[in-house]
Nucleic acid binder design. Sequence first.
DNA 1: TTCTACCTAAGTATTACTACCTAGTCAACT
DNA 2: AGTTGACTAGGTAGTAATACTTAGGTAGAA
Lengths: 219, 219
Amino acid sequence: MNNINKKIITVLLVDDHPMVQGGLSACLSFYDDIKIVGSTTDGKEALNKALTLKPDVILMDISMPLMNGIDATEIIIDQIKETKILIFSMHDNPEFVKSAIQAGASGYILKDITAEEVYFAIKAVASGKTHFSSSIAKMLLDNPISRHENDKLTTREQVILSHIAQGYSSKEIAKILTISFRTVEAHRRNMKIKLDIHSLAELIRYAVNHGIIEDNKCI
Amino acid sequence: MNNINKKIITVLLVDDHPMVQGGLSACLSFYDDIKIVGSTTDGKEALNKALTLKPDVILMDISMPLMNGIDATEIIIDQIKETKILIFSMHDNPEFVKSAIQAGASGYILKDITAEEVYFAIKAVASGKTHFSSSIAKMLLDNPISRHENDKLTTREQVILSHIAQGYSSKEIAKILTISFRTVEAHRRNMKIKLDIHSLAELIRYAVNHGIIEDNKCI
DNA sequence: TTCTACCTAAGTATTACTACCTAGTCAACT
DNA sequence: AGTTGACTAGGTAGTAATACTTAGGTAGAA
């Protein structure tokens, strides 16, 4: 192969699973136009390393201990415009994908793909293009990012929702937060309207799926 | 090191993420008393491979496409008594851990550990001992497996619950299943009693956490 | 066969939630 | 200075859920 004219792409790995990092390093070592210049296991550290290393591409996991990949992406994109971020996640949850795109990621690939696909995805985003796993692309077609997608819940609403999801009634929440139960009900109503949700069940599931309450808390 | 007296432990990898498999293979290749005799990406295929390869240890993921690691563990343990199963998961959900133990797994380690820890865990379960990641062991202390843990929901109750979790009211469910809404309410009540749950919110979360409804369905 | 589990169903009363409505305060931004 | 968004709070009315109760039918196990 003719690699003489190829510019070497520098890559920073961000993944909290040592196994995944090991696998990626091993798989990408076969390509001589890609150089892994660093790796870290958390979004917070990723930001520091990104600032010093200025990699062409960051291969970023989403679920990480201190700072998640979405938040890290948002901050890094904001501070280093030359760096492209390729999300490397095992989750094909539409919410994650949309958040990643809104945070400024150039691509989103799933962890069940082959090394070749990772390679092509890195090449694509490094050259300024976007790249999504075929299943992700298909999913985005089925779940278009709506106009109100950004209307996330306010801090107060999240507090209310976390209490609701824990099983407290409006009255109990009112007592806990020392506000009127009318206010609690107003928040309930507003959340349902802005999320286009029409039942308590969907609201609870929203809370679980969006990390407003931990999956296995109390159950 | 003196490896002369060491019996070589045969290991079967079961994980639907090629990256994880690659990382494991790479990491475990440094230990000459462990030999990876095969790998597969699904529990169903794992059963077949286990029967032909009869490995000493199966390193098993939980979330897999066709058959999950818990079900696969139960079947394999039942058919091949010599094989020990070490669950290798990224989830520290108490429910998963308990299910794994009840299915007959000899250990449960998290994916965020180092190669050395994986090695020691494999050695431990191969010699007939159990091995759990420290955080898992601690979690088990906090969430003891209760006497009624096996009192799972009946098929009918799961059907009712899945409808509840989708946001249908008792009346709507009654119409869908062509039973009296009184019956639906009776099921609701029975489920809450047997699960020791005191709010609809907890019931929904139980449904989400136990796979009675898919995490991101409709939301 | 008695026992148990499961699915079915209903009465009654209370509490919780939901859908409409209006409206004040406060902080931030144009 | 005016607008907007967030948080607060209340009225009224209807619907849903819950907590107690009892109880019939059916299938499988001890």
